[in-house]
């Protein structure tokens, strides 16, 4: 049984190298209203960032995400920052964003359903999606300096000079 399970899994892997995200994916804003990923993909590439108020590396990275949002917003980039704080600690999310003056859109995923749909496993998780819905870059965790690579990936997605 176990052998079969792993065999079938590895059988699938070669077919899975090209990942796409459905534009129907529903995201919940802080006010409870929902939007679809497709609404952002029409403007340009989308960087989805999963974070939480209890995640120290996530918070270290967010200052750079804000910088990228300000820098590339006019080029069509959307940064969607999705908090996976549970329903129990959601009240802290907005005050944290306000205090740091971050301008990107914040979404909530308290039951980690979007996180799982985008194959998130570790925190922070970043997923860069092109306008066709194809995942073109993914990164787990944050080591200071990772933002340089992220910048390169964003510029490449936006077809800007490196």
């Amino acid at each position: 049984m176990i052998k079969k399970f792993f065999f079938i899994t590895f059988l699938f892997i070669p077919f899975l190298i090209s990942q796409n995200v459905s534009p129907n994916l529903k995201l919940t804003k802080m006010n409870g209203r929902t939007v679809t990923l497709g609404e952002y993909l029409t403007k340009g590439p989308v960087l989805i960032n999963f974070w939480a108020t209890w995640c120290s590396p996530c918070k270290k990275e967010m200052v750079f995400l804000d910088k990228f949002e300000r820098q590339y917003k006019d080029n069509g980039l959307s940064i969607l920052s999705i908090s996976i704080d549970s329903q129990k600690s959601l009240s802290h999310v907005r005050s944290y964003i306000r205090a740091n003056d971050y301008i990107y859109d914040i979404f909530l995923d308290p039951n980690r359903q979007v996180f799982k749909k985008l194959n998130g496993n570790l925190m922070p998780t970043n997923v860069l999606i092109d306008t066709d819905g194809k995942v073109i870059w993914r990164h787990y965790g944050y080591i200071p300096g990772d933002e340089k690579n992220m910048d390169l990936q964003l510029r490449s997605a936006l077809k800007l000079n490196p």
Binding site: K88, S89, L90
Partner: peptide, 11 residues
């Protein structure tokens, strides 16, 4: 019923 705890979750 996983309700809000009303205290800070520490890292």
């Amino acid at each position: 019923q996983q309700m809000p705890t009303v205290f800070k979750q520490h890292s």
